[in-house]
Amino acid sequence: MNVSGFDLFVWAATFLGHLLLLFVLWKRRRAAEFPVFTTLIATDVAKTIALYFVLHHLSKGTYFYSYWSMAVLDEALQFLLFYEIAVHVFCPLSVWANEVRKMFIGMVCGSALIALLLTLLASPVTQKRIQAVVIRGNFFCAVLISQLFLGMVILSARSGLPWKTHVARIAQGLGVYSLVSVVTGAAATYFGVAHDTHTFYVLARFRILTYFVCACYWVVMLWNEAPAPRELPEVMRTQIYTLQKQLEYDLIRLRSWRRS
């Protein structure tokens, strides 16, 4: 495998960016708030080290299988991250509102269906069958994740659920990266990798560069503190919690009345 100076630069820069991001997550105590996001970044660091070792000391075939098995893990973590963000937005009090949960499940199913239909239409020209599977797999994940993030934005706007600053920044970064991945995935399908792999590598570099920019964005945004809220006076805090209990009681009573 030919690795250019640019590839090495991006590889090293992304690795350092991830290390910096992990430091920010630890130093600013965001890791406990976003465990999946932290795991995703830590996995990326471990992946970079492992792949560097495999590339220089093991066979090309081993590198290939290591790369793609780790890519599967990466995609799985991205879906979990999506869920983590959804939990922050849709159940801030640790309880999912019924109607939001139903809409959320519908949104996931609908998005998966659209992503599947678009992926089935993709027929990249490749030398090996595995290359087509990889291109289609990447494209499917990118389409699905970009739709899910859009769906979350719609659902939160319709339900009147505000996004906290750091959750919104993580989602923005991942959303932009997914959209760019859709574009590069579609272009890779169109051009294929049968005769000329140059275009495919240019697209891959563009996608990785976008990810690097997103990582830098996360470093800056997660280092900054969210705008400080006004301090709630103690008297009002007590009154608000009393009021909440009263509302809960009203709701239970109204529901039982509906059944009677």
Binding site: P92, L93, A97, S159, G160, P162, P229, R230, L232, M236, R237, I240, Y241, L243, Q244, L247, E248, D250, L251
Partner: peptide, 16 residues
């Protein structure tokens, strides 16, 4: 937006 802890009440109003 002024007092984020009022979220609990906003949640209940949403359910209502």
């Amino acid at each position: 937006t002024w007092y984020p802890e009022a979220l609990v009440v906003a949640e209940q109003l949403r359910l209502n």
